[in-house]
């Protein structure tokens, strides 16, 4: 593997839940992502894929391993990365506008400039007119639009997305996937996207990393050679289904005999 824009090498992480045996979440895990590439990680539940995002985000310290973004070592949270969370993670007592302004606020940017910068991203995610709404007044899809705008507003190099559409209903998810592709092309970010939906991974990504069951390691990497921009029609083509089948064949051996919750 050549040195990537996002580079993780030999990441090991074991944690010990209270009153339980230690769990090895990641073992010698490697990832390399090119600049402006869209890479998805799929794997059985509990394989450590979400944990890896938290490690890369800087919230969880690995036991060992080297991680860098654009040549800069990752040690703790930084402005070059932002995460879009599965459960949205919006502050319920803040309006859309003030949720989006969180990153700039913590960087000490004055309120007026925060608002101006936020406005651009509110438009980009299609939330104009909802600036002063509170999260409980929004639908799930709209909440995640806020989540995406909040991540983009601090202008990170890398967007980490932890099953961002898993809490949405099927139709909203389809719409949000198309929206994400549009936003990704507009914002020109490098994206590392964790999901356990095979179809989602194929539709969105340039490459898909398939992980083994715990302790999580890279099993194989699949290039998705489908042309961009991709439309919904592409999802019913033979090539698309062929790619889905290949990922499924890789994954199914990793799901334990009790039946892991990999869907699609």
């Amino acid at each position: 593997m050549t040195a990537g824009y996002i580079q993780a090498k030999n990441v090991n992480l074991t944690f010990t839940p209270p009153n339980r045996a230690p769990v090895t979440a990641l073992q010698e895990f490697d990832v390399a992502v090119a600049e402006r590439e869209f890479v998805s990680i799929v794997g059985p539940s509990g394989c450590g894929k979400s944990t890896f995002l938290n490690v890369l985000l800087g919230l969880v310290k690995p036991d060992s391993g080297e991680m860098s973004i654009h040549g800069k070592r990752v040690a703790g949270p930084g402005r070059d990365r932002a995460m879009v969370f599965q459960e949205f993670g919006l502050l319920p007592w803040r309006t859309v506008e003030d949720n989006i302004g969180l990153g700039p606020e913590l960087q000490g940017i004055p309120k007026k400039q925060r608002r101006e910068r936020g406005r651009h991203f509110i438009d980009m995610v299609g939330l104009s007119g909802f600036e002063h709404h509170f999260p409980h007044e929004l639908s799930g899809g709209m909440k995640q639009r806020v989540g995406i705008a909040r991540a983009l507003v601090s202008d990170p190099d890398v967007l980490l997305m932890d099953e961002p559409f898993a809490a949405l209903d099927a139709q909203t998810r389809d719409i949000m996937q198309a929206e994400l592709l549009r936003i990704w092309q507009e914002a020109k970010k490098t994206v590392l996207f964790v999901t356990h939906q095979i179809e989602e991974a194929v539709y969105l990504s340039d490459r898909v990393i398939i992980m083994t069951k715990r302790p999580g390691r890279t099993k194989s990497i699949l290039k998705i050679p489908l042309a961009r921009p991709r439309g919904y029609e592409m999802r019913v083509t033979p090539e698309f289904n062929e790619l889905k089948l290949r990922i499924w064949n890789e994954l199914k051996d990793e799901i334990d005999s009790q039946g892991g919750p990999v869907r699609d």
């Binding site: 938290n54 800087g58 949270p77 995460m83 993670g89 969180l102």
Partner: peptide, 20 residues
């Protein structure tokens, strides 16, 4: 979750208390 969100944006312990 909210504590992790603000931490990921570089919040200090004081920020965590103030914001979440």
């Amino acid at each position: 979750l909210l504590i992790n969100v603000v931490r990921s944006y570089g919040a200090s312990e004081w920020d965590i208390n103030r914001l979440v």
